[in-house]
Design a protein around this nucleic acid. Structure first.
Length: 489
RNA sequence: GGCGCAUUCGUCUAGGGGUUUAGGACACCUCCCUCUCAAGGAGGAGAUCACCGGUUCGAAUCCGGUAUGCGCUACCA
């Protein structure tokens, strides 16, 4: 019987929820759900200086938005808590003390200034930077002196000087590191907080984590962790390093490349189902052709083995396309409900709030297949909501027409429209389509002119549908106003 | 500088010795549909599989080297 799958997403609350981290969480969640295991959320708040207020909430907000529910962690508890590292400090101190007494770690009294100078010197001499182990073999007397000076020491790991550590990464295969390339890293900081290395090993072990899934950038520190597992007598988990998400210049995706917080995507009108699908496909693939996968298909088919080894550039273009696909698949009601907040926010303040749901519901089918993000909805439908249209009057004169023919076209249209009782798509077409012929115009010319009159734009949803939703009164009003504009041209 | 890793169309990727004239998707171009824009349909263009050598009857696929890129190299994660 194999051990149950227990994976954890362990963000540090030092900022917004970066899509790269969220994608790691997705992989964690996908594996847990695929294998019937547990997905654990653990907050690694061990950096007091970089801690950002509200970051934990933002991270949880992002996970919830995507539907990545966690089985253990903040808000839900669990048998391996607490799930904030700041509440587990005793555990790390115990481990550090144990390591020191075993001779696997030692107190270091070097000042930050000295370390900095040392590093600068090493770089100048083109030596690999790293702690020079000055405090590794301090005598009892020397230590007592330092203590007497009131220096609070850090605890460093006593890295073996020789030998090597190797591990078999599920994605990268076997990786080997020589111990002489690893320095004596800090385990416990002078403020009493652990470093990532210590906390991560202690907790992953205590929480019985089966797979450590994290970004490729951690691969270099994995031997340190393995050394710690060994010194502490813990059984190491399976390591799974995945490639990073890159910006267009192939460097690690960062703020200067554009939106990096998952919450920004929500604000920009992307659907959570799009983000889940897109992020999953950034580094993972099912086969040679499947692009659109539902949450269920994803959890059913997910496997670590199919995660690639090369960094993937975040392609906003493809994201937009995919969002369009998901938007088009929404039921009308669902689409309306999701678009509503974006309309409330995006429409001009002159539009009376709250918006009429019924009216909005009539408009939405006209644009649903035309938008790629929810933020576009307001701009595309504005003319349905505002009173006076603002546009360049010359637009009323469509190609190969002149002022005179345009006036005539709108004039006659108006006359034909007045008696139309049922202002629906069919009736409108029945009246207007023959009219173009009658006027000796192409359908495109007449409809184009009417489109501008009625919507104020050259690009809009189909004319008859639009007019029908707008209603007879408003259409006639707008045609009249267009006529006024034409005459004073 | 050291260590580690990677390298298939512009981008995401499939493919793991012969079935590959290297498949799909986004983007791009053409055409069809059509009242504009979308959506949809049909085509097209786009990759000497980083380079050099080796193994083999045969290499995108295996091996070595080179180049380039990226990551790590904190009392940050």
């Amino acid at each position: 019987m194999t051990k149950p799958v227990r994976v954890r997403f362990a963000p540090s609350p030092t900022g917004y929820p970066h899509v790269g981290n969220i994608r790691t969480a997705l992989f964690d969640w996908l594996l847990a759900r695929h294998a019937g295991g547990s997905f654990i959320l653990r907050v690694e708040d061990t950096d007091v200086a970089r801690r950002v207020e509200g970051a934990v909430e933002a991270i949880m907000d992002g996970l919830k938005w995507l539907g990545l529910d966690w089985d253990e962690g903040p808000e839900v508890g669990g048998n391996y808590g607490p799930y904030f590292q700041s509440q587990r400090l005793e555990l790390y101190r115990d481990a550090a003390r144990r390591l020191v007494s075993q001779g696997d770690a030692y107190y270091c009294y070097c000042s930050p200034q000295r370390l900095e100078e040392m590093r600068a010197e090493q770089v100048r001499q083109k030596q690999p930077p790293g702690y020079d182990r000055r405090c590794r073999n301090l005598t009892e007397l020397e230590r007592a002196q330092k203590e007497a000076e009131g220096i609070t020491p850090v605890v460093r790991f006593k890295t073996p000087l020789e030998g090597q550590t190797r591990f078999n990464d599920l994605i990268w295969g076997e990786v080997v590191f020589e111990h002489n390339t690893i320095d004596d890293f800090v385990l416990l900081k002078s403020d009493g907080y652990p470093t990532y290395h210590l906390a991560n090993v202690v907790d992953d072990s205590a929480m019985k984590i089966s797979h450590v899934i994290r970004a490729e950038e951690w691969i270099s520190s994995t031997p340190r962790h393995l050394l710690l597992y060994q010194a502490l007598g813990f059984e190491p988990p399976q390591f799974v390093h995945h490639p990073m998400i890159l910006g267009p210049d192939r460097s690690k995706l960062s703020k200067r490349h554009g939106a990096v917080s998952i919450l920004e995507y929500r604000e920009q009108g992307y659907l959570p189902e799009t983000m889940v699908n897109f992020l999953a496909l950034l580094g993972w693939s099912l086969d040679d052709k499947t692009e659109i996968l539902s949450r269920k298909e994803l959890t059913d088919n997910f496997s670590l083995e199919r995660i690639g080894r090369t960094g993937a550039i975040f392609d906003w273009n493809k994201l937009s396309w995919m969002n369009g696909v998901y938007i088009r698949r929404l039921s009308l009601e669902d689409f309306t409900q999701r678009a509503l907040p974006f309309l409330e926010k995006g429409l001009p303040s002159s539009v009376k709030r709250p918006l009429s749901i019924d009216y909005t519901r009539q408009i939405m089918p006209l644009i649903q297949e035309r938008v790629r993000t929810l933020t576009e909805v307001a701009g595309l439908t504005e003319f349905f909501f505002i009173d006076g249209l603002d546009y360049d009057s010359s637009l009323l004169i469509v190609k190969k027409m002149n002022q005179e023919s345009a006036v005539k076209a709108l004039e006659v249209s108006k006359q034909k429209l007045v008696p139309v009782e049922a202002f629906d798509t069919g009736s409108l077409e029945a009246v207007l389509r023959p009219l173009a012929v009658e006027l000796g115009l192409k359908a495109g010319q007449l409809f184009g002119s009417l489109r501008v009159a009625v919507t104020g734009r050259t690009v809009a949803p189909p004319l008859f549908e639009t007019m029908s939703v707008l209603g007879k009164e408003r259409c006639l009003e707008r045609v009249e106003s267009a006529l006024g504009r034409l005459r004073s041209l």
